[in-house]
Nucleic acid binder design. Structure first.
Length: 116
DNA sequence: GTCTTGACGTTTA
DNA sequence: CTAAACGCCAAGA
């Protein structure tokens, strides 16, 4: 194995997509949490970058991924700003404007649920 | 090849 | 308490 500390066999991009697909129904997570799960807690921007590329990949519930405060930052990237809020409401999550209500209650931590 | 921008988060003033 | 700067890494111009 030539890979030494590269425990991330897949690229950061693919790992983010994997985690995004693993987000349970009715749950939400944050970019930082995913980055932390990947071992790059301070590289949260990379998660956003990966999600931007995720547009070409179907089956990526990006609407379940928000910033640390539960703010729908990338709502504009869904085509329709109401789209993301509508999807979250469909899962039983209250969304007012761009802010998720009870975000902490719906929060899903990959590092815990995936027990890495 | 260099500079700017970007779906964020943490730290310091 | 709020506001601003820094850090992180990659892609686009």
């Amino acid at each position: 194995m030539i890979q030494k500390e590269s425990e991330k066999n897949k690229d950061f991009f693919e790992m983010v997509l994997e985690v995004a697909k693993l987000i349970p129904h009715g749950r939400v997570t944050s970019y930082g949490s995913i980055a932390l799960y990947l071992g790059a807690k301070r590289s949260s921007r990379m998660v956003g970058w990966a999600m931007n590329s995720s547009h070409k990949v179907p089956g990526i519930p990006a609407h379940r991924v928000v910033n640390r405060v539960g703010l729908l930052t990338g709502k504009m990237h869904f085509g329709d700003p109401e789209q993301i809020a509508n999807l979250l409401r469909a899962e039983g999550i209250d969304v007012i404007g761009d802010q998720i209500q009870n975000f902490q209650e719906h929060f899903w931590n990959p590092s815990e649920e995936l027990h890495l």
